[in-house]
Lab assay of single mutants.
Amino acid sequence: MTEYKLVVVGAGGVGKSALTIQLIQNHFVDEYDPTIEDSYRKQVVIDGETCLLDILDTAGQEEYSAMRDQYMRTGEGFLCVFAINNTKSFEDIHHYREQIKRVKDSEDVPMVLVGNKCDLPSRTVDTKQAQDLARSYGIPFIETSAKTRQGVDDAFYTLVREIRKHKEKMSKDGKKKKKKSKTKCVIM
């Protein structure tokens, strides 16, 4: 069974824990209790493949930012979460993405942009803004509501699919490099 290491990042209060708990335990946590770091595991079937999701729910508070490099190193894919009623959390996505790329030393890291709290009427981040940002990053965008469960499975499952595509691409690139290195030079 394939294991996928997913990391949920975003500013404090955007609903990272609520999304994760909704996926794992099928219930909505409405009281806000700032996370330092929590880890969850769940076995699911995605596109006919049974897999184990190892999900790291991270601290959004700035005082825990020193811990970010460590979990970013171990993560295979990242859910970059903002709240649709919090423009600052949307603007912060850029910083999370840049930090992930720096730590992973790669421009090509599996990510999904997630606009959470889409059940709320007080939207300050337009869907088109988020779609445009995701398009500019070359990553999928999904709106979710941890409260109603809308888009929750889709967000995590899409990230797994992005990781699969990335692994497939990397193995193809690896095979191309191996083929090239088999060419021999004969000096007579």
Rank of each mutant, 00 (worst) to 15 (best):
K182I: 13
G77N: 01
S106M: 14
D30I: 06
K169H: 10
T127P: 05
G13C: 10
S39W: 01
E37S: 01
H95K: 13
A18C: 05
V125N: 07
P110N: 05
V112K: 01
V14K: 14
I46T: 13
D33G: 01
K104H: 10
R135F: 10
K88P: 15
K104M: 14
K180F: 15
M72F: 07
I36T: 01
F82E: 03
D69E: 11
G115T: 11
D126Y: 07
D54P: 02
S181W: 10
K42V: 10
M111R: 00
N116I: 15
V45G: 12
K101M: 09
Q150T: 04
T124L: 07
E37M: 01
N116E: 15
D132P: 10
G138Y: 03
R123K: 11
V109A: 08
K128I: 07
V109K: 06
G48I: 03
G15A: 00
V81D: 00
A130R: 09
L23G: 12
Y64W: 10
Y137K: 06
V9H: 14
M111Y: 03
R41D: 00
M188T: 11
G12V: 04
M72S: 07
G15P: 04
F28S: 01
G10E: 13
G138D: 04
A155T: 11
C51R: 09
V109M: 06
D54T: 01
T50I: 12
Y64I: 07
V103F: 15
T35E: 00
T127H: 05
V14F: 14
G60R: 01
D33W: 02
G15K: 00
D126W: 05
F141N: 07
S39E: 02
E162L: 08
A83F: 02
V8D: 02
A11K: 14
T158H: 11
G138C: 05
A59G: 09
Y4V: 13
I24N: 15
Q43S: 13
R97Q: 05
F28D: 00
D126T: 06
S181F: 12
T74D: 15
R149D: 15
V8C: 05
Q61V: 09
N86T: 15
Q150N: 10
S106C: 08
A83T: 12
F90W: 11
G15I: 01
A59L: 00
D69Y: 04
